Simulated assay, not measured.
Amino acid sequence: MTAIANSALDALDARLVKPTHKGPTHVAGRVAFRGEILLTEAAAPALTSAIASADTNAASLSFLAGQLATLSQLPVLADALGDALAPNGKYFIYVGDVKRGDRYQIALGETLVYVLPYDDVSVYNELIDFFYLDKTKMKKFDTAAKIDALAEGAAKYGESFPKLTYEEALARV
């Protein structure tokens, strides 16, 4: 039995590569992954700087963040993740070709995804700022505790951005 068994991450296991963390966190019943998530069965493209968490015995990810090179890869990501995305999850995707200052939410079926510009700063650092987390405290945490803090920050995040269809967002890049 793997450390991510009985979670949404288990169904994605073949796509989870280059892990710096893959297993339980300090929150009981939570498992997490930090690394890259392949969008296809080939080695590229991938959701890079990926951070994800799921509750054991849950079919979907509760939290996901990462970076895509282009917005055109968003539907490919949605296909790759399939049922791991759910309406009650919090998903933050930083995209290389989204214009600086643009922030919106895109519906992928029933699921809303936050789409944000990527400004050559790590996704991890972007999320710390985005969720107003204490950088000094975060430096003292191990990887599992860092993912817990980000997942909890995401769960509390309630701000809404303009809701666009994928086609409307694609027309903006």
Rank of each mutant, 00 (worst) to 15 (best):
P162M: 08
A169R: 10
G109V: 02
A78S: 14
L127S: 01
S62L: 07
T143D: 11
G35E: 06
G66W: 04
L164C: 05
L12Q: 01
L127F: 04
L112G: 02
F141N: 08
G29R: 08
A169W: 03
N125G: 01
K163G: 07
R103E: 10
Y104D: 15
P87D: 11
P162W: 05
V76R: 09
S62C: 11
S122D: 10
Y104F: 15
A149N: 00
L71C: 05
G158W: 05
E168M: 10
A107Q: 12
T2A: 12
G35D: 01
N125D: 13
L16W: 07
Y166P: 04
T165L: 05
I128D: 12
A59H: 12
F92C: 03
R15N: 14
G153H: 04
A149W: 00
N125I: 00
V115Q: 06
E168S: 06
D79S: 14
E159A: 15
A151R: 03
F131Y: 09
M138S: 11
A154H: 00
K139L: 15
P117Q: 13
S160F: 12
D13F: 08
G101A: 11
E36V: 12
Y91G: 03
A84P: 05
G29T: 07
T2F: 10
N88M: 02
K137C: 09
I128S: 13
E168K: 13
A44C: 00
D79L: 11
R34Q: 10
E126K: 14
Y166E: 09
K99V: 05
A84Y: 01
A65K: 04
Q73V: 07
P24D: 13
V17H: 01
F131L: 01
V17D: 00
E126S: 15
L68D: 08
T165Y: 09
L108T: 11
F161H: 07
S49G: 06
E167A: 14
D148P: 00
A11L: 13
L12D: 01
P75M: 12
A169C: 05
